[in-house]
Simulated assay, not measured.
Amino acid sequence: MPTPSEMETVHLLRAAVVELGLHSARFASRNGMHPTDVRALIALMDARRAGEETTAGRLGAELGLNSAGTTALVDRLERAGHVRRVRGQRDRRRVVIEVEDRAVELGQAFFGPLIQRSVELLRGYDEGQRAAIRDFLDGVRQAAAEGRD
């Protein structure tokens, strides 16, 4: 049975997730996007940071979309100037989806203050505490991901 302290932490995490979702929805609304568009851009930016190429198939799988839904999503983002389709660097036969710098700048302008505030909060913890926070958040992320299938 969870302790009151453990449940308080779980409820605070849930509240933070809800607020982050609302923040993301405000970004989507202000920029004429669907919430899935924002999730796609985040996935593409994460891949870019990791130096990975993202095909439409990989993006669709990550977002839980079928082929037609993924094509519509990428078409929509491309028309809006947020992504481009290019030949893969490693395999020129593959078409990969790249996020445009304009989309990164748009996201930074909106999410930058929240990111900066989050960094400021983290600076209030020592490295051991930050490691515990990372481990906890990664564990929750993994637990939630187990329910995808």
Rank of each mutant, 00 (worst) to 15 (best):
A103W: 00
R123N: 14
R14S: 11
G51V: 04
S5D: 13
R92Q: 10
A103H: 01
L121H: 10
E6P: 02
E100D: 15
R92I: 07
D46G: 10
A43R: 11
L20N: 11
T55P: 00
E19S: 11
R94A: 13
E6C: 06
E120A: 14
P113Y: 00
A40P: 02
E52H: 12
E120V: 11
G139M: 05
G64K: 03
V83W: 01
M7V: 12
L41N: 03
G21D: 04
R92T: 11
V99D: 03
T71L: 02
A103I: 00
D37R: 01
D46T: 14
V104H: 08
V140I: 12
T36N: 04
L41D: 01
V17R: 09
R30N: 13
V83I: 03
R141M: 14
A145Q: 14
V96D: 00
E8G: 09
H34S: 09
A15N: 10
D149F: 10
R48N: 13
A68V: 09
H82V: 01
G128N: 05
G64N: 04
P35C: 02
L137V: 13
S29V: 07
H11F: 12
L65N: 02
T3Q: 07
L73G: 01
I133R: 06
L12M: 09
E98C: 04
G51D: 01
G51S: 03
R30M: 13
E6W: 06
L12V: 07
L122G: 03
R102S: 13
R14G: 08
D149P: 14
G147Q: 12
E62H: 12
R48V: 06
T55A: 06
R84F: 07
V86P: 03
I133G: 05
A47F: 03
L22R: 14
R14P: 04
L73Q: 00
L22Q: 12
E19M: 10
R134I: 12
H11T: 10
H82Y: 13
D126V: 07
E105C: 06
V119W: 09
L41E: 03
V140S: 04
E105P: 03
V99C: 06
P35G: 04
R92N: 06
L41M: 15
M45P: 02
Q116R: 15
D91R: 09
V140D: 05
G57R: 08
V119E: 11
V18S: 12
R92L: 08
V38L: 07
E53C: 06
R87G: 10
A143Q: 10
T3R: 09
A56T: 03
Q116L: 15
A80G: 11
G107Y: 04
H23K: 08
